[in-house]
Design a protein around this nucleic acid. Structure first.
Length: 425
RNA sequence: CGGGGCGUAGCGCAGCCCGGUAGCGCACCGCGUUUGGGACGCGGGGGUCGCAGGUUCAAAUCCUGUCGCCCCGACCA
């Protein structure tokens, strides 16, 4: 893509509503733009990052046997009434009515819908186990959206579901997802810790969360160095509570020690052993080897994509802008031409075409009336991992400048070996 | 939902206290000079001052209501 053709517009000043660094840079860099509180449009740069993450998640889940499906965002209230969550969940569940005043809900999550679909597939122990998943919008009437992409009213989530015949098999599915999630977070460049958590409105037998540790996170974590737990599970609301007498007994009971540390994190993923929480009320049963009806044992597994994008920026930036890990960067290469010299211009255009043909995704700052400093500042802000600069300064020696976003210094590469040296492998 | 803050051009802000024909920087348009770290000169375009009432000869400014956005807390799959 050429800058002059792109829908991109960068900002020098961050909009005043943005406090978190990820929020500021994503707005300034033209990755997203707000429509309302907790509701965002993904602009081309941001959407490219979203699609990179989408693909990585799908690849890793497919590897453990998850099949991709796509469930609706508008749900007839029927299934939510079957499980009782229509009445239990509270105002976060976005309820709507159609013209006939029939109740519908917007997809806060998809357990009910996937369970309903599974009834048509799973009848026998021979139909188990099964793993399905999707990447789809979730809609929640959040009391307070916040932190840019950290807490949204409408967001994109990967959610997958396991169906097993007993808890032992569920544990195997659960472990598969833990493995896949660790690979996903590693590939997108986010360091996470897995902690024990409450099951909340999801219900079930147990749950874990994947946390990226950062002071800007809204979740609180207590750890003794080996195990970690969501502070809310211990009834701890803030850091000072860790030292309170009320918390002491719970901490001792959970960890077997009083020496614990308090941290903050962003919850980028969560996994639940649902058990029969949904299969019981929705009557998702199977016939076992002895002709006995048994409820299917379920698990659910989710990653918030928007939140993950914000987390990557929180984890990887400097005072000039974002620094995207290669795997999720909107483009591989940020190509810049300096000045309006004809030879520079022709060379840059030629390189642009060659790089695309070589399989590199290239963003070309082809503006002729913009100063070098302006272009460098934009490149640093947008944070594409590799920068290639074409200017008469180096072109006279038949070389071009190449610089990694995370490095301070550039290197010169011979023009005739450039494409081969910077193409993605 | 409680507490606090803010709504003036795409973005950042001043003007409001003390009412009198709306201003600055960035961005944008034209011409020219520039081009290795957010260039310069000259000339331009863009605003129902969030919205609705009220007070007044006159309201961005004062009063009332309302909507929106942000932050803290409660809540949070």
């Amino acid at each position: 893509m050429r800058y002059t053709h792109s829908f991109l517009k960068t900002l020098k000043d961050a909009p005043k509503e943005a406090e978190l660094i990820s929020h500021q840079y994503l707005l300034r860099g033209g990755f997203v733009t707000p429509l309302g509180a907790g509701i965002y449009t993904y602009l081309p740069m941001g959407f490219r990052v979203m699609r990179k993450i989408y693909t990585i998640i799908q690849e890793e889940l497919n590897k453990i046997g998850v099949e991709d499906i796509l469930m609706p965002v508008v749900h007839p209230a029927r299934v939510w009434k079957e499980t009782g969550r229509f009445f239990e969940v509270g105002p976060e569940l976005w309820k709507i009515q159609n013209r006939s005043e029939e109740d519908f809900v917007l997809a806060m999550t998809h357990e009910e819908v996937v369970t309903d679909a599974a009834k048509k597939v799973i009848q026998s122990y021979k139909d188990l186990p099964k793993l399905v998943g999707q990447i789809q919008l979730k809609v929640r009437d959040e009391a307070r959206p916040r932190g840019g992409l950290l807490r949204l009213r409408e967001f994109t989530m990967q959610d997958a579901y396991s169906f097993d015949k007993d808890e032992k098999e569920l544990e195997m599915s659960y472990q598969k997802f833990i493995g896949a999630y660790k690979k996903i977070f590693e590939r997108v460049g986010v360091k996470t810790v897995m902690i024990e958590s409450d099951t909340g409105a999801m219900g079930g037998l147990g749950a874990h969360e994947f946390m990226m540790i950062t002071p800007s996170g809204e979740d609180k974590i207590v750890t003794d160095g080996t195990r970690a737990v969501n502070a809310e599970k211990l009834g701890i609301a803030k850091e000072e509570d860790v030292d309170s007498p009320a918390a002491a007994s719970k901490i001792a009971e959970f960890f077997g020690t009083a020496k614990v540390e308090f941290m903050r994190g962003i919850e980028v993923g969560n996994i639940f052993k649902l058990g029969t929480k949904y299969s019981d009320p929705q009557k998702l049963n199977y016939l076992d080897e002895n002709n006995q009806q048994r409820p299917v044992i379920m698990g659910s597994y989710g990653i918030g994509l928007d939140r993950l994008i914000a987390s990557i920026v929180e984890a990887s930036h400097d005072d000039k802008g974002m620094i995207w890990p290669k795997a999720v960067a909107p483009y591989h290469i940020h190509l810049i031409s300096i000045g309006d010299d004809e030879k520079v211009w022709n060379t840059a255009n030629h390189i642009y075409e060659e790089l695309w043909q070589a399989g590199a995704e290239v963003f070309f700052d082809d503006r002729l009336d913009v100063s070098a400093g302006d272009k460098f500042a934009d490149a640093d802000l947008i944070g594409i991992p590799l920068r290639v600069v074409i200017s008469s300064k180096t072109l006279n020696d038949s070389s071009v400048e190449v610089k990694e976003r995370e490095k301070k210094t550039a290197r010169l590469v011979a023009l005739n070996s450039l494409v081969d040296s910077v193409r993605p492998r």
